[in-house]
Design a protein around this nucleic acid. Sequence first.
DNA 1: CGATCGTTTGACGGTGCTCAATCACCGTGG
DNA 2: CCACGGTGATTGAGCACCGTCAAACGATCG
Lengths: 281, 281
Amino acid sequence: MTILYAPDFPHAEGATLIEPQLAHAAFAPCRAPMQELLTLLGVRVPVDDGSSEPLGWVPLWRVRPGQALVHEGAAVDHIHVVRSGSLKCVRVWEDGYEQVLALAGRGDLIGFESLSRARHLTGAVALEDATVYALAVREVEAMRRRCPSFDRALLLATSRQLAAAGQIAEMLAPVSAETRLARFLVWYAERMAERGESPRRLRLRMPRRDLASLLGVAHETVSRSFSFLAGAGVLRVDNREVEIVDRDGLLACTRSTRTGNAESALRAAQAGRSASTEVAS
Amino acid sequence: MTILYAPDFPHAEGATLIEPQLAHAAFAPCRAPMQELLTLLGVRVPVDDGSSEPLGWVPLWRVRPGQALVHEGAAVDHIHVVRSGSLKCVRVWEDGYEQVLALAGRGDLIGFESLSRARHLTGAVALEDATVYALAVREVEAMRRRCPSFDRALLLATSRQLAAAGQIAEMLAPVSAETRLARFLVWYAERMAERGESPRRLRLRMPRRDLASLLGVAHETVSRSFSFLAGAGVLRVDNREVEIVDRDGLLACTRSTRTGNAESALRAAQAGRSASTEVAS
DNA sequence: CGATCGTTTGACGGTGCTCAATCACCGTGG
DNA sequence: CCACGGTGATTGAGCACCGTCAAACGATCG
């Protein structure tokens, strides 16, 4: 018996998702110039000749918030590159707990880790309206051969993806919840800066629950950690709007590796700072 | 002022490691046929013609236990593929805490995540005698162009590497220390099986301290978790020799995602099993 | 304006971190 | 041969942090 779920099926309460072969039909069929994808991936494209678009086109899909772009366990026939918006990469355990393993924003690859397998290891669900380039796995090899720029861009993108995975691990490793949250915020701010947005005023695209899952803590604890950092004068928090008031203080919180909570590190940093201000005044 | 460290410098007590330009000299210069690397990476090599080795040779380095193959912060001029032995990928924080971010065994890439940057994000230290293929970054592009098999193998290897990174995150995410350890052991056993070794009798190549760092817990807690799983009849533990006595029980422990410790899941699994044995007897 | 979902805060209990002592193992040197 | 220090593993005691349960508040949308 094969169970089919529509791609907008509310993500999986303990159910195993199988083969949404009809998925593609649900995404608006659309195309974008390959050129656009390449510049997104940060590769200088050789101007070649005068011919404007010898590189061809790439299918572009649109995903609605809450909609699944990729189903965990589905056959791997496409990998994706995020063009706009953001998605979460998730794995659902048998008891229904949804583990968020990564966030994907503009320029990030989705599903690439499944390329070496038959089935997707993680699902991908949109956090907001998003558009993604869809690369058919069968065509990837041909595209790489035909377009060296794409080939090089893909390799660099995987390298970046691997580096990002390491940073996720660095967010999960420390004991203190405040430290985890601080590291997440610094990481998130850096990503915003890379994309030309403000690294001070952040708009989190996910509910506390998802953030908590990514950090490996309870969502109440995330809330408390936000309150703590706000109370310490490091952040201003209004729901999902976060302003980094004191970047140095936040960085101090990221540095407490194991022992002690962020409070001590923060106090030390602030003490050092107030001392220098006193000297200045 | 530029500080130079010999590559066998005991790994970094809070010191920043800079530019070991002399590193290469310390590794035994040696070469292996490219063919060997390709089969390691799991790619069927086309037999081409009768010419035995048109693919050329790859430099092979030897690393001693405790020796650093890659220094955190060093310039990226090589990436590596492990041929034998195993290494840990580490980041050292300012307070001297050493965060283990990954383990690299036969077939794993090292340093690839730094390919998109100027400097290595993580260091790599051998856990035992190891040999690695060394790929000069400058030559990687040429190698890929010259040898499509290598090109394809590299892409698949990065995909596998990315999948492994996700599994590390799954080991770090659960609250319970026993769950983390159980997931690590299952993951480790799978790797052993892939390499044709016994998935029941494991020889951990690292001290408790490193394992604890990888799992994001205190090393005493790792010890306690081992004792717990041994007491529950799931493992037999003798120092770094671990035997998986009850694989189903161990799997049950990996499944407790957030709430509750592994004890409840284990009891439930064992209860179910004893019930079925009663029926059988 | 009511319903639902998300966020915040409180109280309580449990898990794991810290500090500390003990033990096993190993290579060295008396 | 055994004493010796060094490293790594184990176990215990005490306490802090976080997970769970619960309630209240706020936002969003119909």
